[in-house]
């Protein structure tokens, strides 16, 4: 028996909107730790890891570890039917081939339930090693989204370089080239507007903008984004989910031939 009641249902709606274009089908894993997911995109270039900790739910009952295969597009369709202020409860019985999403309006005058068929998904689980990153950049998530969108109108790939000067996003394409430098800036009115750069070693890595643009679909989840980089390792783009967990996107770099 599984019953997870999330008062801020909009968070789950935003989570689905942030990953449904990158991943088609995925297993949601439910344990005493929380509600989580790990899935790769179909070309195995990027990986998404989601965690919603059990403490973040108003009610969290998970009698035994459960893995539920879902088509994310279908799940997003159902969650779109929940109001932004609705409380969402996820329910499943042991051995059932369906999951139920229950939506309650804040005043309790409208209660809906949507039953979705589960699917068997044979997915590989990858071990993500704990890593010390050479450079960690925290910046406003909207700024990162803007940069990725702007650069993708010029080129297909972005080179992200971190030096003492700041973080530079560069691209080249048929029509020309572009460089955007963001300097560390902590003298802002709101802490979430700051750009903070922690650098141990200078880093320069190249990534496909097609994927970074997928990641920025998570912008509504958090006002800041953290980009962790090490030479010759996948980048981690993390959006924290208020007091509950995170969505982390890992992207393998492109290397020169």
């Amino acid at each position: 028996m599984l019953e997870l009641r999330l008062v801020q249902g909009s968070l789950l709606k935003k989570v689905l909107e942030s990953i449904k274009e990158l991943v088609n089908d995925a297993n949601f894993d439910c344990s005493s730790t929380g509600f989580s997911l790990q899935a790769m995109d179909s070309s195995h270039v990027a990986l998404v890891a989601l965690l919603l900790r059990s403490e973040g739910f108003e009610h969290y009952r998970c009698d035994r570890n459960l893995s539920m295969g879902m088509n994310l597009n279908n799940m997003a369709k159902m969650l779109k039917c929940a109001g932004n202020d609705d409380i969402i409860t996820i329910k499943a019985d042991d051995g059932s081939d369906t999951v139920t999403f229950m939506f309650e309006s804040p005043t309790q005058d409208k209660i809906s339930d949507f039953e979705m068929k589960l699917m068997d998904i044979d997915s590989e689980h990858l071990g993500i090693p704990e890593a010390e990153y050479d450079a960690i950049v925290r910046m406003p998530s909207a700024e990162f989204a803007r940069i990725c969108k702007d650069l993708s109108s010029i080129g297909d790939t972005v080179v992200i370089s971190v030096t003492k000067e700041g973080v530079k996003f560069s691209t080249k394409g048929d029509i020309g080239a572009a460089n955007i430098v963001c300097r560390q800036n902590t003298t802002v009115d709101k802490p979430d507007d700051a750009t903070v750069i922690e650098m141990k070693e200078p880093v320069s890595l190249q990534f496909a903008l097609r994927y970074t643009n997928f990641f920025t679909k998570a912008t509504p989840l958090s006002s800041t984004v953290t980009i962790s980089l090490s030479n010759e390792l996948p980048v981690v783009v993390e959006y924290k989910i208020a007091e509950m967990g995170y969505v982390r996107f890992y992207l393998a770099p492109k290397i020169e031939e």
Binding site: V45, I128, Y250, L251, A252, K254, I255
Partner: peptide, 14 residues
């Protein structure tokens, strides 16, 4: 333009 690496080259299957 560079060669796109796969994520599975970095993270072992568990």
């Amino acid at each position: 333009k560079g060669v796109q690496l796969n994520i599975t080259e970095f993270f072992p299957t568990t």
